[in-house]
Design a protein around this nucleic acid. Structure first.
Lengths: 341, 341
DNA sequence: TTGTATGCGTTATCAC
DNA sequence: GTGATAACGCATACAA
């Protein structure tokens, strides 16, 4: 009866006793230590099976100083892009034998700072961090003493690994796509006024570059501010755009949630898509393929980002003092009905 | 220099030495033990701050037999309903001082079974489990020796806590809502043929009950099978429905993803919503408020489900041998444009 | 109110 | 190739 059904009761000692070996030998077996006599291994395995032994991971963590858990800090899972990113990160982690602890920062600056120094960092071997509010001034806060991989381009050049995409080029490509469809009065929604390094600023830069490359004058009235990149913000941006009376024949949503909100607001006002107004988003979330009309977007290579991030983090955890790396994921333009393709 | 900046190097012993007390006293302070002399507490706190002491959670876990982590097993985060559920669970957990480890089962039966016996269960104090494939025959697999809260109504009457909603009544209300708008030929998409206990079966039951209560004959041709409740499945169901040539003036998507797929497929065929075809979904995901037209749905009290689940699990972890509970969350009908309201 | 000593289950360092 | 034993850092009887 001993231990059967009672959680965590069977220890290596029990297995060792049952198999007539020492605990070290049991440890060797469960850890696939190379030099074990087959007969010994078999004997131990038999005892393990019969007793239903499960390793106590807390004990192992204490001893090794590692938990086998990695942290993933992101704004919120109810934003489809981050839900899909989390999905990919969890899959990548599972394939590599680690599990993922998710923390939501709610796009709150203080919360983003807290997550870096939280007690929970004790529980994880490293952190994949996708900040939304921290900026260049917070670089010091990111100088932490555990393995860290930062997603996005908000903060450059620190002592940590970085996985991002080329926001400028991708936004330029999105804008160029609209221009290629004959659009000249292209509004961009979700801009962040004071920002210089965030995704918003970089994507607006790409937008401006595309206009310039095509000799299209930049009209500041077409750049619409919008804080949180939620659907509601996108709808609100379009409302303000329409009320302002400025003419436009296309909208570039700085992410898909904004673009979805835009589609909704345009529909509510009886403005058809793609004519007279074309719409493109950014992120290529699953929704984009199912809206009416379907939403053109930029696919940021989410799977690649997730895998690179996990690989970099695990390499860092494994202890390489390698130079910090900066991985730039590929993107592609995904044309759909909302841009008339 | 000792330990500063080097992770995990400062222990209770160091703090005790610095403060001139014993480790037990340090332990008392960090655990808010009531009877400590203020002067002592202050002295210890000062040493903690100066040394930058952080408790080693692995050591605590080993000692206490608890990790402070709860597991959440769900099909996949890229399904919006589950992403939003995870969001709510993480918030509820955080408010109660525990963190959440998410595992995706991919709606795969074997994977759902594996998650119940995985090594990872060693890492969590309990599990909130949302199965999609397990059925009544798998009840034995759910007889586990750790705290478990099951979401949904797939498996009844075991020795575990249960949080669900009244699927039958909710589906009846959804159907009744369509009937109230004058619909008589109501198709339902996403049905599961052999199933008797799952959400699909229960919701179809509610659908049938509503028809019967209104004297509307049941036409089997209006019940469309659809395995995975993804958007693509919803689109496919509608395609088959249209091709079958059967007349219909409304569609009840057994979840919102199916309904979104249906909206997409109807739009692609030039069939307007809500006239001639009204559509209602189930789950009330955020998307529903932003589709064109907006999607009527059933709100399942997701926040309530998450909080109840976490509370039940923590109570069970805390050790109550209380009788197993079954919590039924409230639902509401949310009428939007897709049903002509 | 605080200190001492022991053990949680594992891995690692040595011997043998 | 395998065994004895000492940590890992904390919580808790038990003692004082």
């Amino acid at each position: 009866m001993s231990g059967s059904g009672v959680r965590g009761t069977v220890t290596m000692h029990d297995v060792a006793a049952a198999a007539g070996v020492s605990v070290k030998t049991v440890s060797n077996v469960v850890n696939d230590y190379p030099h074990i006599r087959p007969a010994t291994r078999e004997k131990v395995q038999k005892a393990i099976d019969e007793l239903g032994y499960r390793m106590n991971l807390s004990a192992r963590s204490l001893r090794q100083g590692r938990t086998g858990i990695i942290g993933l800090a992101l704004p919120e899972l109810s934003l489809p892009y981050f839900a899909e990113l989390a999905d990919s990160v969890i899959r990548a982690a599972e394939a590599r034998g680690v599990v993922v602890l998710i923390e939501q920062t709610g796009a709150d600056r203080q919360h983003e700072l807290d997550v870096l120094t939280s007690d929970r960092r004790q529980l994880t071997d490293g952190l994949i961090f996708s900040p939304l509010e921290l900026g260049p001034d917070d670089a010091d806060a990111l100088k932490v003493d555990y393995p860290l991989v930062v997603l996005g381009e908000r903060i450059f050049g620190g002592d940590w690994d970085h996985v991002t995409m080329n926001n400028v080029d991708a936004a330029r490509a999105a804008t160029q796509h609209l221009i290629d469809q004959g659009r000249r009065r292209i509004a961009v929604i979700g801009a962040h006024a004071g920002e210089t390094m965030g995704s918003a600023a970089l994507r607006v830069l790409g937008y401006q570059a595309a206009l310039a490359a095509n000799g299209i004058p930049l009209d500041p009235a077409l750049i619409v501010e919008g804080g949180l990149w939620h659907r509601a913000t996108g709808a609100d941006c379009v409302a303000r755009l329409v009320e302002s009376g400025v003419e436009f024949d296309a909208i570039f949503g700085l992410n898909d949630a904004l673009a979805l909100g835009a589609l909704h607001a345009l529909h509510a006002r009886g403005i058809d898509v793609p004519d007279p107004v074309a719409v493109i988003g950014f992120d290529d979330i699953e929704d984009a393929a199912y809206t009416s009309p379907t939403l053109s977007s930029i696919s940021p290579g989410r799977e690649q980002i997730a895998q690179e991030a996990v690989d970099l983090l695990l390499a860092r955890i494994a202890g390489g003092g390698d130079p910090y790396r900066r991985v730039i994921a590929d993107f592609t333009v995904v044309p759909r009905e909302s841009t008339g393709v």
